[in-house]
Design a binder for these strands. Structure first.
Lengths: 186, 186
DNA sequence: TAGCGTAGAGAACGTACGTTCTCGGCGGGG
DNA sequence: CCCCGCCGAGAACGTACGTTCTCTACGCTA
């Protein structure tokens, strides 16, 4: 069955923007990759900023879905699930087309001058944070929000380290740090 | 006394590029802010990418210098010095013109297609890492490199969190996590 | 003082891109 | 069968910008 114009646009936008950056890909390239007319594109997204924000929202859903799937299927205690987050990060970092966190990249690229994009980045980071808080609540420790926020910092740091530095040691190092923090919080 | 053309260019480049992004500022604006002719600029830096890489190197030196100053003047044990790193991050995040880590931003903006910029970003992160390793060696723990790398992840995570999210809680949270990691590593 | 190299100011060029406009064809309703 | 509105294709427009070229004026040397 045929996906809708919007779906094809978002799929093309995700592939192109993530691989080559937002400023590195023109509207017309997304349009032609999706097989959608320019007129239709501007009907759906009245400016590039709208398209980019929609791409980020779509990627947010896919990304958190993949993470949650991995964590859920890894079973185990809340502690094991929180550690499984870092295992999944390691798998993600090792993918051949990994290019860092799309949201951090987007923030660096246009965050200062694109309110819709900034809002999408914030949404994503807050949803990721909320997800970690939800897992941490299962720990029955005294401060699940604090633990989750500390693990969030580790995860974000691992993403940027993995993006910038060639060696993919970041996820393992983050996992070890997470285990130590979880032990300390018990 | 008059600073050299190169110094004025780098100062102007740092102010403009950090505030508004690399793609958001044209060569001519840097040139005119520095009061240097276009010809002279191209003598010193044969392309924008060279100028940007030089700006990043200059910022790297200033940034690490400020950090090292704060840490050195805060005295204390190696452990206290490592924690002072996060205190300084908190001060930095609170500055009114704070806009995240210039290097992470630059990576997101042009990292994929500007080898000189990518190299400058890597250099900076490695020098920061080496600085933390130097401090961690004073701990006499079993694995100073591992500890330093875990603290590096926390610091990077705090930088991105502070940049993206409005509330500046990141530095304190990172400091608490760092204290827990240091306690666990002893 | 005459000539020359150099440097600055800024025009010019090529390109890329976001956005809008125009044209031509196709389909559906009378 | 004819007309009308819509849609896709792509030309066009305005702008921004990296880079190069041109012209002019100044200062140094013989």
């Amino acid at each position: 069955m045929n996906r809708s114009d919007a779906e094809r646009l978002l799929a093309a936008a995700e592939a192109l923007y993530y691989a080559r950056g937002i400023n590195g890909v023109g509207i017309d390239e997304v349009r032609s990759a999706a097989g959608v007319s320019l007129k239709r594109l501007y009907q759906l997204y009245p400016s590039k900023e709208h398209l980019v924000a929609a791409y980020l929202d779509a990627r947010d859903q896919r990304w958190r879905g993949r993470l949650a799937d991995h964590v859920a299927h890894s079973g185990g205690s809340p502690r094991d699930q929180l550690l499984a987050v870092f295992d999944w990060l390691g798998l993600w970092f090792a993918e051949p087309d990994f290019r860092g966190c799309a949201f951090i990249n987007a923030f660096g690229e246009v965050g200062g001058s694109a309110p819709l994009v900034l809002a999408a980045v914030r949404r994503h980071k807050e949803l990721f944070r909320d997800y970690l808080i939800g897992l941490a609540r299962g720990l029955d420790g005294p401060d699940p929000v604090g633990v989750a926020e500390q693990l969030l910092l580790l995860a974000e740091g691992a993403m940027t380290a993995a993006a910038v530095l060639p060696e993919p040691r970041a996820a393992q190092q983050a996992r070890r740090a997470a285990a130590a923090l979880l032990a300390a919080a018990a």
